[in-house]
Amino acid sequence: MADSKMAKAKLGEFLAAVSADYEVYGPKADNGVVTFGRIASADELALTYSNSTVSAKELFLPKTETVYEFDGENFVDDPLPEQKRVVLGLRPCDCRALTLLDGTFDCERVQDPFYVTRRANTVLVALACDRPLSSCFCTATGGDPYGEEGVDVLLSDEGESFLAKAVTDRGKDFLEQYGKFFSGKAAGKWAERAKAASGKMTCDLSLAEVSQRLDGLFEDDMWERVSQKCIGCGTCSYLCPTCYCFDLIDDKTATGVKKIRRWDCCMFQSFALHASGHDPRPITAARFRQKIMHKFNYHPQRCGLNSCVGCGRCVRACPVNLDIRQLLGDILAAAPSAASE
């Protein structure tokens, strides 16, 4: 199906129809905090936000999840999340972030069955970003407010209606399935709208070369300096759509145990601590370096791409106003000869 359009007045009806076939998730606002949750009706949807406070990551990698249960004698069958879902209204940066998580949780070497099942069963209907925030920097990371990576259907808010575009076959099937809510052949001004949106991006960095620059900076004394005000709270990691480090813990049941995969953060003191008491990253500077190196040097070495989509959540939420853009800018500005030694 080519471009089409849905009048906003039809949103309620559309959601009711989709809800009959899928679990529907979307952005919900509570006192200005926008998070993703189950949507029962159109008036629960908060579609006027610039970006959600929390990313859509947890719909695929929940904060806590049982990865197996042992009843003391036998393993209980894995409760795979097989329900069909639609996530509506997430931004292109969050969709792109999922393609980066795919490289870890669904790669040739290992597949996380919970993550893979959710990804396979979920249609991503993204809402293009017309009002990027001053803290947003998706274009610096190779993304775009109208980006299509990871997106199944892209919507654009035209005021009275949504423009809709199928990006993948799954998106095409979805639009066809609910074709009666969309008027076909709507010649949307996609290109103009996309251009206007990316024109609002204020960050002029290009992060493609950061990885190479970081090669020689492991021993640099900059880490001590740039991490000085970091309090290691982990807010940046918890809000980050591409951070995925986790812990595995035992949650006792009456006769057995549930093994829980729980979000963790490389900024926490106990993260790499050995049972012997030895800690390979015993100070904030070392942990801060690990976080930056993992995103912009180690991940590119392994998967070819920076593990950052420029959503800007870490910039907005950091309690001590650390701005990753400033740090990356400084790294890029460092003399290439010194950095690539």
Partner: peptide
């Protein structure tokens, strides 16, 4: 090292 997952995922 502290290898929690042992399969290259947990980041430790």
């Amino acid at each position: 090292m502290r290898m929690k997952c042992g399969i290259g995922l947990c980041g430790r």
